Computed example of a mutant assay.
Amino acid sequence: MKTINEHIKQNSFVHVYLLYGKEQQAVRIYRNKLLKALLGTDSLDELKQDMNFSLFVGTPFDVSSAIEIASSYPFFAEKRVILIENSKAFSAENAGLAKCIRELPETNYVIFTEEEISSKKGLFEAIKEVGYVCEINEQPQGFIEGWIIKELSFSGKRISRTALDTLLNRTGMDMMRIKNEMDKLIAYKGEDTDIKVDDVLALVSENPQNQVFKMVDAMSEKKVDLAMQFYSDLLELKVAPQKILSLIERQMRILYQVKDLRSKGFSTNAIADSVKGIKYVNKLVNQASKFSMKEITDCMNDCVDLNLKSRTGALTDRMAVELIIVKYSQRSSTK
């Protein structure tokens, strides 16, 4: 993504970009940056009126038309831009489109956006060869905070530091969810400029992963009743038991990494740098210290085993979660 920013800063672009990954909100942000830099606006409604802009969305994808347009020079303009979104064009080699990409006129630019890439041959290889490929997944917290502040300012809103922390604590780093919650907050505040902690608490529901953290924390403290209460809260939030089981397993995998690095003498800052996508490292170190490594590995294995049993009907999914909570809320002599 730094490469895209550098291209824009220098006003020097490659002729084809592929932006893909799980964080689709960030994909859209960088797509819009490219559109604005190339054509002066990122408004698709405005661009649709431009005869030198073409948009292909979804399937079925008309490959022949895309090749024809991409091979044609712009009409009384310096640039022609073709935007191709969620086309599934990377599910096959697409030799014809790959050839077109390699032979684009100097005036033409093609931007692909996808959520997943199922084949990294043919078309993908062509773009990598002559253009720029950027996989965009979970973004750093600093980037997300800056984006939130900027988006809210566009709507005439400000958010306090504590309200921002509370928002991220409840949503996690999922930018799509954050965008939805921001839209709710903007509508809720009306003419009022300032978004406060109470506004976030009133409108934004708790992030299931945060609830699971609290539940696992109660398990680490061997407080089975409290852990069961957090489990009940998750069910009230309409989180499926199998999802809860997978979140417990995810939390244990993080604790495994944290505990392993801690045992090797890593500082909290070094752990934060080594384990991708984690927050509140001190809390994780503290939580990991209350489980033995055997408990953590056994819990991960039990989560997988019980998930399979619940899927095959050997026991209910609710019972699977309850067994994990009860078993790992019991005291162990080894840490």
Rank of each mutant, 00 (worst) to 15 (best):
Met1Glu: 10
Ile4Trp: 00
Ile4Glu: 02
Gln10Asp: 14
Asn11Phe: 01
Phe13Val: 07
Val16Gln: 03
Val16Asp: 07
Val16Met: 09
Tyr17Glu: 09
Leu18His: 05
Leu18Val: 08
Glu23Ile: 01
Gln24Glu: 15
Val27Thr: 15
Arg28Gln: 12
Leu35Ala: 12
Asp42Ala: 10
Leu47Asn: 03
Leu47Thr: 12
Gln49Val: 13
Asp50Trp: 04
Met51Trp: 10
Gly58Ser: 13
Phe61Ser: 10
Val63Ile: 13
Ser64Lys: 15
Ser65Met: 11
Ala66Met: 12
Glu68Thr: 13
Ser71Trp: 11
Glu78Met: 13
Val81Trp: 00
Ile82Met: 04
Ile82His: 00
Ile84Ser: 01
Asn86Met: 12
Asn86Ile: 08
Asn94Lys: 11
Cys100Val: 07
Glu103Gln: 15
Pro105Thr: 09
Val110Thr: 04
Gly122Met: 03
Glu125Met: 02
Lys128Arg: 14
Glu135Phe: 09
Ile136Met: 15
Glu138His: 05
Glu138Trp: 04
Gly142Gln: 12
Gly146Phe: 07
Trp147Thr: 11
Trp147Val: 06
Ile149Thr: 15
Lys150Asn: 14
Ser155Tyr: 05
Lys157Ala: 03
Lys157Ser: 04
Ile159Arg: 06
Ile159Trp: 04
Ala163Val: 07
Ala163Pro: 00
Ala163Glu: 09
Leu164Met: 14
Thr166Tyr: 02
Thr166Ser: 11
Asn169Met: 11
Glu181Val: 03
Lys184Cys: 11
Tyr188Met: 13
Val197Ile: 13
Asp198Ala: 15
Val200Thr: 10
Gln209Thr: 14
Asn210Lys: 06
Val212Gly: 00
Met215Cys: 06
Met215Gln: 02
Met219Pro: 01
Ser220Arg: 11
Lys222Asp: 03
Lys223Cys: 02
Asp225Val: 10
Leu226Tyr: 06
Ala227Glu: 00
Tyr231Met: 03
Asp233Ser: 12
Asp233Thr: 10
Glu236Gln: 13
Pro241Gly: 04
Gln242Thr: 11
Leu245Trp: 02
Ser246Gly: 11
Met252Asp: 01
Leu255Gly: 01
Gln257Met: 07
Val258Ile: 08
Lys264Ala: 10
Gly265Gln: 05
Ser267Met: 06
Ser267Tyr: 08
Thr268Cys: 07
Ile278Lys: 08
Lys283Pro: 03
Lys283Asp: 06
Val285Leu: 07
Gln287Cys: 05
Ala288Ile: 01
Asp298Leu: 09
Asn307Ala: 05
Ser310His: 05
Gly313Trp: 08
Thr316Arg: 09
Leu323Ile: 15
Ile324Tyr: 00
Ile324Trp: 03
Val326Thr: 12
Gln330Tyr: 03
Lys335Glu: 15
